[in-house]
Design a protein around this nucleic acid. Structure first.
Lengths: 251, 251
DNA sequence: GGGCCCCTCCCCAGTTCTTGGTATGTCGTG
DNA sequence: CACGACATACCAAGAACTGGGGAGGGGCCC
């Protein structure tokens, strides 16, 4: 049963501590699930680490060369579709996610000629952090093992998490960088309120709001509000939801 | 096996065609998995428009009331953590995802008193589209059924996809894209530069920079820089990569 | 050509922010 | 208890931003 496979592979994934080991686990996993190839990409942005990202795969050499040489990433319909689906998707359903141009179909056709038959791609995006995809592929002429898609979904997501951990891009949050009150003032600032408006909302003096924001800026060593908001957003101290839709909703 | 449950529930989810039916399926699913409550939220579309989105749950009435009354959404650590994890996460691991302030812990404590014990939240974000979360909760004193987390992950994601389908929320592509120059000025602003500094960098008059930012603000219908930067970031017009990693690494 | 958008530059009045201080009181910890 | 961290409040000067105008030139499309 695919669940057992998923469980086993999951534990292998969390034990992987190098890119090489991770690749080996994914290669083995893709075969056990009934696929022929895999590809994992991770593009994380961090102000503290200058990380080029992660790309590991066992695609046919020919396809990898073409993909890089012609810079196909920029026009890859699969990548575009990644912005449209909450779940993994098989490539045959691409046209239900995005409009497919002739060039898109041609690109898939070129893939076919290189041994890239059909695929199942697991997309993930973390706002302000970066994104990752994990794709499992069958060779040209092969059939996608649909019954294992759920397992592939889990494995793909866990693989990204592992890659993030391995690449050192996981920033363990030390202590809260800001006090509660500072964060509250910052939040209303991010929502577009001025210091005076925030003061009225919080029921305190405008000067106090300014003071909180002042100290918050010093914490992050920035000298303007844009940057303060961005750093707090990046650090996870505030989130897009907090900013854009603060009228009640449950978690 | 829990993935069998997932398979069954998955087919129920894709057959649901009303919010009510979806809620019923999720309620049944959460019980079968060993949870006591569920909550599904979906917020699609632009943050500019006041789209109510989807929110269905069977939380205790008391908690829902408090959550709205005290405007807890703005300081909910679970919501913040959603921007940090590729996979679902249990609330006990929150402090490994985000910095937890005193207020955060207090909020969880209040939840405990309302019958919200521990939870597992599945986050998804589609850049420029919106986001969804699906949370499964055990009552206060209950233990999280960790063996079914994988199934919960699948069900949560599928539930969001169903909610998206049901709500008929297919974002209008009316994007307020900025002009190249506007975006460029915005980018340097996000990097913490003043209008004068940006002007020097771009080799144009400070007045022009101000003008670009002015028109950009009008596009997004905001009246301050923080908000402008945030909206552009959310829309994917600029990314954290652009902001934090602009030194070196030319491309 | 005319309309529309973009890029550029300018002026001005008013508001807001930033930075530098000082000061009080509470709270929790060592 | 002393100390640091936090929240609150205030003052002042200068820099920066916001919102309201106008204005010329270039490119694109019908």
């Amino acid at each position: 049963m695919s669940l057992n496979i998923a469980e086993e592979i999951a534990s292998e994934l969390v034990e992987s501590d190098t890119e090489y080991a991770l690749g080996a686990v994914l290669a083995r996993a893709s075969r056990r699930l009934g696929f022929d190839h895999y590809a994992l990409s991770l593009e994380m942005g961090s102000p503290r680490h200058d990380d080029p990202g992660v790309l590991i795969h066992d695609y046919p050499e020919e396809w990898a060369k073409i993909y890089v040489a012609f810079d196909l990433a920029g026009r890859d319909p699969v990548r575009r579709a990644c912005d449209k689906s909450f779940t993994g998707f098989e490539w045959g359903a691409l046209d239900r996610l995005i409009p497919m141009t002739r060039g898109d179909r041609q690109m898939l056709a070129v893939g076919l000629e290189c041994g890239i038959g059909d695929g199942y791609t697991v997309p993930r995006h973390l706002p302000g952090e970066g994104r990752g995809t994990c794709t499992f592929v069958v060779r040209t002429g092969g059939n996608l093992p649909r019954p294992v898609f759920f397992a592939a979904e889990i494995i793909g997501a866990l693989a990204m998490a592992s890659a993030q951990r391995i690449s050192g891009n996981f920033r363990s949050p030390g202590k809260p960088a800001l006090s509660d009150r500072q964060r509250e003032c910052l939040l209303w600032t991010a929502r577009g309120k001025t210091a005076v408006e925030t003061a009225i909302i919080l029921g305190i003096s405008p000067e106090t709001v300014v003071q909180h924001l002042k100290l918050a800026r010093e914490r992050y060593d920035v000298h303007c509000r844009q940057s303060l908001v961005l750093y707090a957003l990046f650090d996870g101290l505030i989130g897009f939801d907090d900013i854009f839709r603060w009228r009640g909703k449950g978690h």
